[in-house]
Amino acid sequence: MHYQPTVLITDDDHNILAAFEDFFRRENCSVIGVTSAEEALHKLESHHVDLLVTDVRLKLQSGVTLLLHAKAILPKLPVIVVTGYPDLITETDAKMYGANYFFLKPLELDKLREAVRTCLHMNGKS
């Protein structure tokens, strides 16, 4: 059977989360959607995850905190950072914190799709 990669998505906006979930299901991924960095960390510790997609602006801990934590426990995990607030974090910053890709909202789905495929391929699982 074909391997179905798991994507963990963190966004505190339920509508965006739902849209992400649709997008990744069409990409043949199994999806775990959470609304906080705390939940995301918990999932990372308890589930196998092939790709992490996170918003920067989250309620309690920020997406960057999540990114730093995630990279500390799973250095090889590909991470895509998404934000609607370009003044909060720059692409250079995101990459320095360990992100593989950085996208601004509203998302260009073609670019996201390409990035996702590269990430999953990089992880050797697609």
Binding site: V56, S62, T65, L68, L88
Partner: peptide, 10 residues
């Protein structure tokens, strides 16, 4: 608030 907490330590 969001500007201050780029990284949060709990």
């Amino acid at each position: 608030f969001f500007r201050l907490k780029v990284v949060t330590v709990n």
